[in-house]
Design a protein around this nucleic acid. Sequence first.
DNA 1: CGCAGAATTGATACATCTCAAGCTGGGTGG
DNA 2: CCACCCAGCTTGAGATGTATCAATTCTGCG
Lengths: 248, 248
Amino acid sequence: MALHEPLLHGKDCGDCPIRHRAVCARCDTDELDQLEKMKFYRSFQAGQTVVWSGDRMDFVASVVSGIATLTQTMEDGRRQMVGLLLPSDFVGRPGRAVASYDVTAVSDLVMCCFRRKPFEDMMLGTPHVNQRLLEMTLDELDAAREWMLLLGRKTAREKIASLLAILARRDVALRQRARGGPLRFDLPLTREEMADYLGLTIETVSRQISALKRDGLIQLEGTRQVTVPDIRRLLEETGDDSDGGMVG
Amino acid sequence: MALHEPLLHGKDCGDCPIRHRAVCARCDTDELDQLEKMKFYRSFQAGQTVVWSGDRMDFVASVVSGIATLTQTMEDGRRQMVGLLLPSDFVGRPGRAVASYDVTAVSDLVMCCFRRKPFEDMMLGTPHVNQRLLEMTLDELDAAREWMLLLGRKTAREKIASLLAILARRDVALRQRARGGPLRFDLPLTREEMADYLGLTIETVSRQISALKRDGLIQLEGTRQVTVPDIRRLLEETGDDSDGGMVG
DNA sequence: CGCAGAATTGATACATCTCAAGCTGGGTGG
DNA sequence: CCACCCAGCTTGAGATGTATCAATTCTGCG
């Protein structure tokens, strides 16, 4: 296990790629110093489990790079993904030492972990971590509620289109591409992971992706690289109000 | 409109039935005084809309008594309930003046409203409201994620059983009934509201309730009053791990 | 080159939706 | 006090979307 967890100690928060978006976003230099003392980095390979639901978890953490998933599993094996964790997202719950969900690295992953006790103590003293964490939690709650609409009411085609639109949007945000041009990005998830996220089977995911391809809404290079020639046409398939802030 | 909104000003926070569970739970007397100055009560009749999604909302609020729902509606009319608001639950998002969801009173409802601006100002100064709101938001996020599993992976029968179990549990908590005995409670929701909550049609809700009745898992008095002779048998139908803290 | 996991495709089953009647119970007006 | 009415609910029959089961076919990689 230690093999895959090289120590990245001493890395300076000032150079951190998620400094301005993570739970520490509002901290001043004093507070950052405090955090530095309780932090340590951990790395995971794609496919590794970060924690199992029900396990004790002595830290909370921010995703620094890579992607992780939060999933729930029923006794008979049915699985539902309940969160997709991207860089700067927060993992764990202050005040609760036991994980509520399985956390899995779907790509190579680096996390910035804070020892639970000092982190909780800090939250009592300084408001900045609290305020930022509240803001992030409210955002996650909104995202979860949007996903509830998707899971409860959307058709399989709408579900796939919605997921692709979200991934495309994320890429737009990252790479600041010109508006209106074709978008290209890599799917970070396997078909099975997409199925778990969307409440579908792997076969239905595959069929709907093929259908979107047939209809010219997307193109595929291999099985992972997606090109969206016209994002507006894809958005029309999501079932959402047109123009969710994505185009002009 | 004023007809249905009698002014309940001046009511003392000290006597408030949700004093110890709402967003103000951790406030000291000074902070309560501050809140008293920005608060006002509003009442709604069953069926009334509190706010429409997209509307400006100049307050945030706590449910004092009654039940409200949070719903999203798609352009073609498909609806998904994304939250059920019970006494002490919080409505609105600090820092956002526009409602994200439709809020509807499903029973007669009293809300304790705080004017937005002073409330937001207070959150910057004192940590207690912030801390409590974070805790409540994390609880809501957990509930939303549990609901994602239900919406994405559970069968219609499991969905109905899960909802009934939750309502039964809530009643246990309120009335502190003896363990093991039969439970009786009133459904706060119509079949249509249940359908919107569970991602089903009204007909499927009705059929599954009839099926649970046929199988002796529940009894019905009229259309709203439910008796659960053996809660464990009902819990077995939810698909969840047995014994979610409900029975000793 | 060939293998194993991932993905696609096909045929069929089945759960839930849709459309269409009825039913029920509580309220109202004659 | 009864007849009626209406919203909410139930039940039925048939349609449909997605799951299930079963082969193939890709794809990346040793």
